Computed example of a mutant assay.
Amino acid sequence: MYAIGIDIGGTKVAVGIVDAAGQLHSQTIIPTDLERSPREVIEEIIETVEQLIQQSHIPLEQLAGIGIGAPGPLDAKKGCITCPPNLPRWIHVPIVEWFKERFSFPVFLENDANAAALAEKWVGSAKESEHFIYLTISTGIGAGLYLDGKLFTGARGNAGDIGHMVIDPSYGKCTCGQKGCLEWIASGTAIARRGSEIMGTPLSTKEVFQLYQQGEPKIVPFIQEVFNAIGVGCVTLINLFDPEKIVIGGGVSEVGAPLFEAVQSYIHSYALNPDGCKTQVVPASLRQHAGVIGAAAVFFKKKGEK
């Protein structure tokens, strides 16, 4: 049995076919065009799904359904993307309804960080954990809360939106309207924006990290501030939810050891509970595939609950 997993992000959309054991069989990535209407983008996603099904040669009777992971705020129960800051034109988008107009499969929607948390529990770094948090640091920042052996989603599916926790108002206004949000300081988008300002030339997140690794004196203290802000976010999660492990994924996590060592050190110094100071911080196993596998996991999980 297979499911279609769709991971919608602020810069790209990944579409894949995943089997019931969590193995990704094929995947296509398309850019998220923020200038186009949500309906136009979703039509392109639907066409991509149709092409992927055709190219896979998997019999239709073996395709069980579709899972969609998308940034919040959203309403998972209503199948609606509400108003994500990184998708500014996506206001009250009934994405599940639009998919059901074209497919007879069951279709389920979930917050993207929640979906990735399910993936890491299913076949990733948290297989043995019953109390963990998945933190994604990419275009935006979010967290999936897997607590007491189950995903904690909140009333509408938006629990864990730690990216809009205020860290330091002096950093200025976030896209959400508050000042100094974690996402405004430490997301991939923020790193590229601030790094470009510091160096006086347009830089990508990857280029900013390259300068950091080269020891650029203007960039090193900035990235240390970023790591410190992520540490603050992790300590807050530990103090609130007492997890045994934090799994960090998303593009920013690709910087590797410097990030994990800095965050682990911050936790050791500042988590309130002495046992909380020992909370493990580990990289996501599934890396760029967590979103798609997680979206498929959403389908398999919700299908199993019905």
Rank of each mutant, 00 (worst) to 15 (best):
N239V: 09
T201R: 15
A257I: 14
D161R: 03
G163V: 07
A271L: 06
P221K: 03
V232G: 03
S204N: 06
I238S: 06
A257Y: 12
I223G: 04
Y270R: 11
Q178P: 00
Q224Y: 00
G251H: 02
M165L: 11
H289T: 14
S265E: 15
G180M: 00
A262K: 10
D275I: 10
Q280H: 13
C181F: 03
G160N: 11
G172I: 00
A290Y: 01
P274R: 10
I191M: 10
M199G: 01
K278E: 13
T236I: 13
L272K: 09
A192L: 13
Y266K: 03
G251A: 07
R193D: 12
Q210C: 05
G200I: 14
V282Q: 09
Q210M: 13
A271S: 13
K278S: 06
V166P: 00
V235E: 10
R194M: 12
T189L: 07
I223F: 07
A229I: 01
H164M: 09
I191N: 09
K245R: 15
P169T: 13
Q224S: 00
E183T: 07
V247S: 04
K245W: 11
E244W: 13
P258S: 03
S265W: 02
V226S: 01
L259P: 10
Y171S: 02
G200Y: 14
P258K: 07
V252N: 03
S285R: 12
V263Y: 09
G256C: 12
C277V: 08
A190Q: 11
E216A: 10
K179Q: 12
E183Y: 05
C174V: 08
A186M: 07
V247T: 05
V255K: 03
K218W: 00
M199R: 15
Y171V: 01
M199F: 05
S265N: 15
E225V: 00
V235C: 15
D161T: 03
C174S: 15
K245E: 15
I219L: 08
A229V: 02
I219R: 06
G200C: 14
S187D: 08
G160D: 10
Q178K: 14
K179A: 14
V208L: 13
G195M: 12
K278P: 00
F222M: 02
I191S: 07
N228Y: 09
H289E: 15
G215C: 07
G231E: 05
I191F: 10
F241V: 12
C277T: 14
D161L: 03
P243K: 10
N273W: 12
L237W: 06
K173R: 15
C174Q: 05
Q178D: 09
A229H: 02
M165Y: 06
C176K: 06
P283F: 12
G172R: 02
S204T: 15
A271T: 06
R287Y: 03
G233Y: 08
A192M: 12
D275A: 06
S265M: 09
L182Q: 09
I230P: 03
G188C: 06
F260G: 05
N239E: 08
I191G: 09
P202E: 05
S253F: 04
V247I: 13
V235A: 05
Q264H: 14
E216Y: 00
A229K: 01
K179M: 06
Q214N: 14
G276M: 01
G215P: 11
D161F: 00
P283E: 10
Y171F: 15
S204H: 10
